[in-house]
Write a protein that binds this DNA or RNA. Structure first.
Lengths: 208, 208
DNA sequence: TAGCTGAACAAGCAAGTGCTTGGTAGAGTG
DNA sequence: CACTCTACCAAGCACTTGCTTGTTCAGCTA
């Protein structure tokens, strides 16, 4: 039996967080992953966009996988923290729900690439050990939303005949999928999209 | 100057529609494209799943692209025809809208792979000439839904303060994205999902 | 029974993949 | 002045990709 440990850490310069150039490269990679897809983006594409050679990328990152990993983790951590804060501070379920929605929409501004990647590639990436955490995070998000919906139902604010898991999925799908068509330079602001959606979700589209 | 025409049609056996084996292979390819993604699926994957060698695929199809192309066209044509029929026959805008939604949901049963591919890969595929038709079809779908929403607004059935383009996108995103989590063997039927969504969309989640 | 056809195999090519390696230039730092 | 560190380059390795080619062979049809 030979040890299969992958020591490899020959020289480990800017590979830990910190460097500015690193962050820049991550942003470039993220945008490519988001628009072309993770597999369709080659390390040469990333290097070209950054104006360096592909080999040079490995000065900053261990692998292509490590890049997506970092992009996703940053977004997910941020989102998780924000959700927890909302749950803690919201005075009532309806406020909590609208705040969760608003916060999710505003994440589109801060992490557009990460959201697109999470949406498009989570399924594919989940097959690798490195991304074992992905299903867990999705589950945690669902639990958070469900709790708010349940409390609202108990309080009589949300209709009793709702299938809450289904309701959550409708909301989640609508909000996150926005990343595929939202244009930061277009007429519609994130805020107006969020407001309109909250409005429709709460009161429906039919006149009364 | 040498002619660059790509004659190639050395022997062109089952390459035009018809063969049963062909349809079988298309279904296999479709499922792989839908679950792993178009780029992540190799022709060897498809051949393996079909129990033949990769080279043998080229007896039936000109290319990997040709396979997706055919899968998408079949679905889009079907959907387009169905939409036209609904528009023609529905007695009022509200019925038309609910029928469009129901029909879209039931497409999940008939074309699950094609829908997933259309959702995930349309953006990527659109960069190739062969798929120039994709943006056009998406546009046509949008126009159909918008007409129904506009007529409903004019008739006083739908609220006047709705941004209709936005409303359409909310609906479209919710319905199509279902393909990513719907399980035909699960507890929820397509019909119950459709009913619940129509219910929420029309009347909202808040008690009154 | 001779010829044709649909379906497949076996082998391989050119291009491209992620990643490794050994090295260099320049800016700091003791 | 010697040193270390960061950022990068140039070359290339092992492998996978979509696709092509030449061939085989059972089952039909004339």
């Amino acid at each position: 039996m030979v040890s299969t440990k992958r020591l490899s850490a020959r020289n480990r310069p800017a590979r830990e967080n910190g460097s500015e150039r690193r962050a820049e490269l991550l942003a470039i990679a993220g945008e490519l992953f988001a628009t072309r897809g993770f597999l369709a983006t080659t390390v040469r594409d990333i290097a070209d966009a950054a104006g360096i050679l592909s080999g040079s990328l490995y000065h900053h990152f261990d692998s292509k996988e490590a890049m997506v990993d970092e992009i996703l983790r940053e977004f997910l951590d941020d989102q998780r923290q924000a959700n927890a804060k909302i749950i803690e501070e919201a005075p009532d379920p309806r406020t909590a729900l609208t705040e969760l929605i608003k916060r999710s929409y505003s994440a589109l501004r801060k992490h557009p690439a990460a959201i697109a990647i999470f949406q498009n590639e989570a399924n594919y990436l989940a097959q690798f050990e490195r991304f074992d955490y992905l299903p867990g995070v999705a589950d945690e998000f669902e639990k958070t939303w469900l709790r708010v919906l349940q409390e609202g139902q108990k309080a009589g604010v949300f209709r009793e005949d709702l299938n809450l898991k289904l309701t959550y999925r409708f909301i989640r799908d609508t909000v996150w999928t926005t990343v595929h068509w939202f244009n930061p330079n277009g007429k519609l602001s994130i805020k107006s999209i969020a407001d309109q959606y909250i409005n429709i979700l709460c009161d429906g589209i039919v006149t009364r």
